[in-house]
Computed example of a mutant assay.
Amino acid sequence: MREDGKLDYLELPGGELDAVKTFYGAAFGWTFQDYGPSYAAFDEGLDGGFDADLEAATKPLPVLFAHDLEAMAARVEAAGGRIVKPIFAFPGGRRFHFRDPAGNELAVWSET
């Protein structure tokens, strides 16, 4: 059930939708519902947080989860993503950042 004040949706620039859908499908197994020629929706779960370091957090940063971070980094690259911050440790685990075909920066994290 949806609740007032809860994060409910994340909308990102898509650029060339076919390339973006192919990338997220290959890297993460996402599926899409097309709504006309210029919009593709996904339903893949969502939590969130705020980063007080304004140097590091100048734009929204969607963060995905992976049990095997190295394997996921390889999948991202094989699907056409570009790693922009290699795997590093942070309080709570490890993560890497990448850019998708539309230029959006995302991160993938793991507890180990």
Rank of each mutant, 00 (worst) to 15 (best):
P101F: 03
P101Y: 03
A73Q: 15
R95L: 12
L106G: 10
G36E: 07
D68G: 06
D43N: 14
P62V: 04
A19T: 06
L106D: 03
L54C: 02
V63S: 04
Y24R: 03
L46W: 07
R75D: 03
D53Q: 12
F98S: 02
H67A: 11
A73T: 08
A107F: 02
F65N: 00
R94I: 01
A56H: 09
A52N: 14
A74G: 13
D51E: 13
P86S: 11
G103V: 02
G103H: 03
R75T: 01
V63F: 00
E70R: 13
H97P: 01
E70M: 05
A74K: 15
G29N: 07
E16S: 11
F50R: 15
E16A: 03
G80P: 03
L61M: 13
E70F: 11
A89W: 04
W30G: 09
D53I: 10
L17W: 00
Q33T: 14
A102N: 08
A41G: 15
E44Q: 15
F23P: 01
T22N: 12
E55Q: 12
I87V: 13
A79V: 05
P86F: 00
A26S: 06
P91V: 01
A40M: 06
F65G: 06
K85W: 01
N104P: 02
A56I: 06
A52S: 15
P91Q: 05
L61G: 01
T31E: 15
A107R: 02
A78P: 06
D100W: 04
D68E: 12
F32I: 10
L64G: 02
A41V: 07
L17D: 10
K21C: 12
E70K: 14
A78L: 08
L54P: 00
A74R: 11
A26T: 11
A19S: 12
F50S: 13
P60M: 06
F96I: 04
A73F: 02
K21Q: 12
K85D: 10
F28H: 05
A73H: 05
T58Y: 02
G45I: 03
P37I: 00
A78Q: 11
Y35V: 15
H97W: 13
A79N: 04
F88Y: 14
M72H: 05
K85F: 03
D53L: 13
F28E: 04
R82V: 13
G80H: 03
I87C: 09
D18P: 06
Y39L: 15
H67T: 11
R82K: 14
A66N: 00
L61D: 01
G29D: 06
D34A: 11
A26P: 00
A71I: 08
R82C: 00
P37W: 02
E16F: 10
F98I: 09
A78Y: 08
Y39G: 08
L54N: 06
G49Q: 09
I83G: 05
Q33V: 12
F96K: 04
Y35F: 10
K21F: 00
L46K: 05
H67P: 01
P91A: 06
A27M: 07
G25H: 10
G103K: 01
K59C: 00
T22D: 12
T58Q: 07
P86C: 09
A41Q: 13
A52R: 14
G93K: 03
G25V: 02
A57N: 08
D100Q: 11
L54A: 14
A27K: 00
E55S: 14
D18K: 15
M72L: 14
A19Q: 13
D18M: 06
I83M: 09
P86W: 09
D47F: 10
F98R: 06
A19K: 14
Y35L: 14
